[in-house]
Simulated assay, not measured.
Amino acid sequence: MTTLPPFHLAIPVHDIEAARQFYGGVLGFGRGRSDVRWTDWNVDGHQVVTHQVDGHTAHVAGTNPVDGHDVPVPHFGLVLSVERFQELAGQLREAGTDFVIEPYVRFEGEPGEQWTMFFLDPSGNALEFKAFRDPSQLFAV
């Protein structure tokens, strides 16, 4: 599997302090540069920046059926190792996170078998984290 360079993603949040508690405290991502209305996060080597936008309410445009579940769209997230996925799922459960889709194995026994979970941040942004039993199956058809 080819290692890609880090990506950068900026997301709007309605409350920067709630975002700091969630991304730093619950998810455990390292905090980088910040100011009164924004914070950089080290999301497993990728840069995600939360920007406070007054009055912002995240909008899930809809859902798409995938493997018997309604996947929220739009969403973002990362592909993790299975070990890191299980660790993060445990952190989220400990924090009392309400999952949109509980952690489970999707496409079991098929090409692209993967663990996946969906949840919302405090501003309603949908996040997905997944892990492939066999990372070479990331783009399997």
Rank of each mutant, 00 (worst) to 15 (best):
S34D: 15
S34C: 13
S34W: 05
D35S: 13
D35R: 02
D35G: 15
D35L: 11
V36K: 14
V36T: 14
V36G: 11
W38R: 13
W38M: 12
W38Q: 13
W38T: 04
W38I: 09
W38V: 10
T39G: 12
T39Y: 08
T39F: 10
T39D: 15
V43A: 09
D44L: 07
G45M: 07
G45I: 10
Q47P: 09
Q47T: 06
Q47W: 11
V49G: 07
T50Q: 11
H51S: 14
Q52A: 12
D54F: 07
D54P: 04
G55L: 11
H56E: 15
H56P: 14
H59C: 15
V60T: 06
V60K: 03
V60S: 12
V60G: 01
A61K: 10
G62Y: 10
T63A: 06
P65G: 10
P65S: 05
D67H: 11
G68S: 15
H69E: 15
D70A: 02
V71Y: 10
V71P: 06
P72Y: 04
P72M: 07
P72V: 05
V73T: 06
P74K: 00
H75V: 07
F76I: 01
G77E: 01
L78P: 08
V79P: 08
L80N: 01
E83Q: 01
E83M: 06
R84T: 02
R84H: 09
F85E: 05
F85Q: 00
Q86C: 03
Q86D: 14
Q86F: 08
E87W: 04
L88G: 06
L88H: 10
L88F: 09
A89S: 13
A89P: 02
G90R: 02
G90Y: 08
Q91E: 13
L92T: 00
R93D: 15
E94H: 01
A95H: 00
G96M: 00
G96P: 11
G96Y: 09
F99R: 05
V100E: 15
V100M: 06
V100A: 12
P103H: 04
P103S: 14
Y104L: 13
V105T: 14
V105L: 15
V105N: 10
F107Y: 10
E108M: 08
E108I: 03
E108W: 03
G109D: 13
G109N: 08
G109L: 01
E110Y: 14
E110V: 02
P111W: 02
P111S: 13
P111V: 08
G112N: 11
G112L: 00
E113W: 01
E113V: 03
Q114T: 04
Q114F: 02
W115D: 08
W115V: 09
W115M: 10
W115Y: 13
M117T: 01
M117R: 03
L120F: 02
L120I: 10
L120M: 09
D121K: 00
P122L: 05
P122V: 00
G124F: 05
A126Y: 09
F129E: 01
K130I: 01
K130S: 12
K130C: 05
